[in-house]
Simulated assay, not measured.
Amino acid sequence: MSRRGELLRMLADGGEHSGEELAARLGVTRAAVWKQLQQLGEWGLELEALPRRGYRLAAPLDLLDRQAIRRALPELVAGRLRRLEVHEELASTNDQLLQSTDLPEGRFDACLAEFQSAGRGRRGRHWIAPFASGLCLSLNWNWRYPPAGLGALSLAVGVAVLAALRAQGIAGLALKWPNDILREGAKLGGILIDLRAEGAGPAYAVIGVGLNVALPGAARRAIAARGTTPADLAGGPGALPRRSALAAALLAGIVSTLVEFSARGFAAFADDWRAADALRDQPVRIEQGSGSVSGIARGIDPDGALLVDTGAGRERFISGEVSLRPAA
């Protein structure tokens, strides 16, 4: 753990801590503490300096606990886990797992980070998530003989994410094709799948989930400035789940989904996805490289492709080809 990470663990309770106390606990000078405190903004954290009293974070932090995540996994899922990594900072959890080349079939690695310096959303967009404000989680999976319909895997994972969140008491959830997780119509999170495959041979997938848990105001404003209305888990009724418990629930749900998807394909999840479809029968605009198409969303076909009634008739769109937005 870095010196900055040690300092954050002391400040995570949201209470006031004097410079003298922090310096003594770290075994450094007050000047060294001040230098580290000044760098917290790089992680998107808001620090309050209280004259003659000390320092405190604008809000407490619920830090991830690797052992708590492992203990919370169901036995059958834990038996498939090869390696669990929890990092203070990474460029990208997906990129970290993309480096793996030796994953046995039926096993998985999981990688989480408190902060991503180069987290990616769909179409290469930067994912905004200050330190410990959400979940940045990835896991990998390997198929010797990949199942048909891998293009719909992100939709099946969306069903798993909704089920895991609902089991934690989170309400108001929906899915937006192909990979957005919504809460009360605003964006709560997203799914990013990196797939490495060779014809009919083996396939290797890294499944990434980004989820807003408790976004600071500055992050909300930054996301809204890009044209997206953000949501988080802290904005609803009821107690906020611990991030480690939530991470374990997501891992368990996604792994179970991967096992079932391998055996039955997207058909096992299609009805649940349709029940959560946020845009069915709504006017939408589909943006492509060559222009845009407007129409009425009519759900998905058995392969997970989006169906839209346009002026030219009913058209079919494949995940990854388009950017989909509600019509103005």
Results as ranks from 00 to 15, higher is better:
residue 172 G to S: 10
residue 169 G to S: 12
residue 134 G to E: 15
residue 193 I to K: 03
residue 193 I to Q: 01
residue 143 W to I: 05
residue 138 S to R: 00
residue 158 G to K: 06
residue 169 G to N: 06
residue 128 I to H: 11
residue 120 R to Y: 03
residue 144 R to F: 00
residue 135 L to D: 07
residue 174 A to N: 09
residue 148 A to K: 08
residue 171 A to L: 09
residue 147 P to F: 14
residue 121 G to E: 00
residue 168 Q to M: 12
residue 152 A to N: 09
residue 131 F to P: 12
residue 128 I to W: 05
residue 177 W to S: 07
residue 190 G to W: 11
residue 149 G to Q: 06
residue 186 A to Y: 12
residue 185 G to M: 12
residue 123 R to N: 13
residue 153 L to I: 01
residue 127 W to A: 01
residue 151 G to P: 09
residue 191 I to V: 12
residue 142 N to M: 14
residue 166 R to A: 10
residue 171 A to I: 03
residue 189 G to N: 11
residue 167 A to C: 06
residue 144 R to G: 06
residue 138 S to H: 14
residue 186 A to D: 09
residue 164 A to Y: 06
residue 150 L to C: 14
residue 136 C to H: 05
residue 193 I to P: 00
residue 163 A to C: 11
residue 159 V to P: 13
residue 125 R to A: 02
residue 158 G to E: 08
residue 131 F to R: 06
residue 134 G to I: 07
residue 135 L to H: 04
residue 127 W to Y: 02
residue 194 D to L: 05
residue 148 A to G: 11
residue 150 L to D: 08
residue 183 R to E: 10
residue 191 I to K: 05
residue 165 L to S: 05
residue 164 A to W: 11
residue 154 S to V: 15
residue 142 N to T: 04
residue 127 W to K: 00
residue 189 G to V: 11
residue 195 L to N: 10
residue 170 I to S: 11
residue 159 V to T: 14
residue 120 R to H: 00
residue 137 L to D: 14
residue 127 W to V: 00
residue 121 G to A: 01
residue 155 L to N: 13
residue 155 L to R: 13
residue 196 R to I: 04
residue 192 L to A: 01
residue 129 A to K: 04
residue 129 A to Y: 00
residue 151 G to M: 04
residue 152 A to E: 11
residue 190 G to Q: 08
residue 125 R to C: 05
residue 178 P to M: 09
residue 183 R to T: 14
residue 154 S to Y: 13
residue 129 A to R: 02
residue 184 E to T: 06
residue 128 I to N: 02
residue 186 A to C: 15
residue 130 P to G: 03
